[in-house]
Each structure stands twice: as structure tokens, then as C-alpha cells.
Design a protein around this nucleic acid. Structure first.
Lengths: 207, 207
DNA sequence: TAGATTGTTAATCGATTAACAATC
DNA sequence: TAGATTGTTAATCGATTAACAATC
């Protein structure tokens, strides 16, 4: 009987993780749910409830050990896994992600780049050679890729997703603005920039 | 007495909008909530409920006119506004967004680029000159900028946000991984890529 | 008319908030 | 001890799902 954990809770954990890391940098030893909540504009009750989903990490009357809690949340999120990414579609966005430094500190590294554009195949970004998508299966296997990053046009995204799954990736990070069909429970996260931008437009229009 | 509309509903509207646009391309005239739901993996009840929040757009026994509904949703989202964007921080991500074509079709256009790096000030991306962030106020005013896009490092994001608001932007689209403090109800949308990536890590770790 | 489909009310489900005993 | 703070149960709130009358 699997306990179901809400997506809202899972999406807050990275915020806690990041803030705790900042606090470690500030040499803070102990933190209360109250202070953590103040920094993130999240109620302390919400934080305690989220953490209680996974165990008991604090001490009554005291608070949470910053380092321990950061470690525990990192483990819950699986950030110790050193995930290996392949980016499919090395256009502007794919190229930007290949260069983006923020993921490395969370344990993610880009190990392969794939495209179908002959003009850029063979070029290198950050030392990584852009390979032909036609040999995706081999590249994914050779580089032990865990996560496929989809930054191709929407029209190509579904077939790329299927090929990545066939090639053996364990999860997909999709930037193409389209609903992908994947096997039930296959790990997939969509980063749909136009949703956020449209929501911003909505809120601005009301004012 | 303002009726409160859930963020979940607002975030689904862009999905409806996009799908309806595809359907227009397919020359579809009429669509049911059932068919629209099938394409997006959303229940037809949910779709009807979302739409009912804003009015009555369908015909009983018939369905929705694809073109009309697309237009209505576009109006609700404020996509007729031709929003003008300024990107602050022209690194890899900022540069990628400056080149990104998907927004233009939704009515957003990038009209200004700002950075503090002397090495890139004066260069052009897509014909737009990178200006010095020191003259932000003037650039924002001259170009009638509506939306500030924050793609600077997290350490700079708060001050950039404050400067953009002072300069007169009406909304912020923030890519820096940090909680920004802005005036109550000031339109702000966060695109925190590390949240999605961490959630993906979580789901992959469970398997 | 019979079948299809919306718009809306009612029922259910799930997430957040409040309250508080335990305990440092 | 008194004050602080967690972990957890109960209460509330809000969002989704179900049901169905209206109607094309």
C-alpha cells in the first residue's frame, strides 16, 4: 500500500533544500520551521507537515539541524545520484541548458548533446561534442545517460521522447510545448515556459 | 467582492489555448470538452468547470466553436496585449530567451536587453543592442517595456527586481532561483528550473 | 424524437491551516 | 521551571469529480 505524496509537497522540497544550503553558507547550525518559513513565505505548519511525510528530522523545543536536514532532503529528492543528462535539440534553449551552471551544484551533469542539424553536428559546447540524433541509442548507452532533455520543436518532441525511452533513459525533462504520451508512471516533468508567461499576462491584464 | 480564480485553472488555460490553435490549423470547426480533454489528458468536467469560471462559451448538445473559444481564452489571458519584454542578464539563458521564437506567436516580443558586463554591452542579439543596466530606467521608458525578465544570478535578482519595478514594468518573469520580495499582488511568475529537475530526480529515485 | 453535450449544483477528495500534547 | 518548538491529529478550506437538468 503505497503512501501517496502530493506534487505540491515534492515541489516545495527543492526550495527548502536551496534555502538550507544558503543557511549552511551563513554558518547557521539550527533553524526553526518558523524562520525557514519566513525566508520562503511558507507557513511553518506547512513545512512541518511536508517534512513529517518523510520522517522526523527535528528536535522538539529546539528546531532542525541545518546540515542534517539539508542532507535528508537531498536524499529524499535523490540528489546524491549524480544524474547524467543528454540534451536533444541543441538550439538556443538546448545550448543554454548545456552551458547552464546551476544544475551541476545539484548533482546533475550534461554528458551528451544530440541534434539532427548537420551544420552543428561535430561542434562542441563546453567540451561536449554534438552527435547525430540518428545514433541516439549508442550515445545514450555509451554515456550512461539517465535523463533525456527534450529541447526540439513541438512537432518532433513525441518521437524524440519515444526514442529516448527506447534508448533506456529513466526520465524525461521536456521543454517542448506539447503533451507527451509516455508509459504510465514514467518519470516526466514538463517545463512549459509559455504557461508561466501566459499566467503572467493574465495577472497583468487584471490590474 | 472579487471572485478568486485558482492558479490551477489559470495554468490550464494556456494548454487549452495552444490545443485550440492546433485544431484551427487542422481546420476543425467544433470541439467537445470530451475531445479537448482527450488531447490534453484532462477530464471534460474539469475543462467545463474551468471555462464556466469566465462565462458560457459553448452550445449545449453541440460543443464549442474552436475559433471563438480560442479567441475568448486569448482575451481572458490578455494575449491580445502585445506585451513588450526586457531581458536583464544576457548570459546563456537570457540570450536563449532573446532568440526564442515561441513567445512571439503568443504576442510577446523582446524589445530590450540589459547587462552589466562591459564585454557584451553594445553587442546585438536578433538586432537588439545590449544596453548597460545602469541606464535601465531610460531604456525601460523609451521602449515602453511591460515585462521584466530576470536572468541574472540569484545574488543580483532582488535588486534587479526592485529596479525594474521602479523603472515602471508591470510584471516580472523571474528565472533566478530565489524568492523575490515584491509589493503585494505585483504580478510575478517564477520559472525555477531546479524545482522541476529536482522533482524529476525524486520520481526517478522511487523506481 | 433520440442522442449528444453544455453549464451548474452537489458530493467527494485532498491539501492547508489550526490546535495542542510531547519534550527539549 | 518557563519558553520554544516539533510532530501529529482535527478542522477547515478549496479543488476536482460526479450527477443531471437544460437544450441543441
Amino acid at each position: 500500500m503505497k503512501k501517496l505524496i502530493s506534487q505540491a509537497t515534492i515541489d516545495r522540497l527543492p526550495l527548502y533544500f536551496r534555502t538550507l544550503r544558503l543557511m549552511e553558507g551563513e554558518e547557521l547550525q539550527i533553524i526553526s520551521s518558523d524562520e525557514l518559513g519566513r525566508r520562503l513565505d511558507i507557513t511553518p505548519e506547512q513545512i512541518r507537515k511536508d517534512l513529517a511525510t518523510f520522517g522526523q528530522f527535528g528536535r522538539k523545543g529546539i528546531g532542525y539541524d541545518v546540515h542534517d536536514l539539508r542532507n535528508n532532503i537531498g536524499n529524499i529528492l535523490g540528489l546524491h545520484n549524480k544524474w547524467r543528462l543528454a540534451i536533444v535539440g541543441v538550439g538556443h534553449l538546448g545550448g543554454a541548458l548545456a552551458n547552464y551552471g546551476n544544475f551541476a551544484s545539484l548533482g546533475f551533469s550534461v554528458v551528451a548533446l544530440l541534434d539532427i542539424n548537420k551544420k552543428i553536428i561535430g561542434k562542441r559546447i563546453n567540451g561536449i561534442k554534438i552527435e547525430n540524433s540518428a545514433v541516439m541509442k549508442e550515445i545514450i548507452a555509451e554515456n550512461s545517460v539517465d535523463i533525456g532533455v527534450i529541447t526540439v520543436p513541438a512537432s518532433e518532441a513525441q518521437i524524440v521522447a519515444e526514442n529516448l525511452i527506447k534508448a533506456g533513459v529513466k526520465g524525461l525533462w521536456n521543454f517542448a510545448p506539447i503533451k507527451l504520451s509516455v508509459p504510465t508512471n514514467f518519470p516526466l516533468v514538463n517545463e512549459d515556459l509559455s504557461v508561466g508567461l501566459s499566467a503572467l499576462s493574465y495577472h497583468m491584464s487584471k490590474n
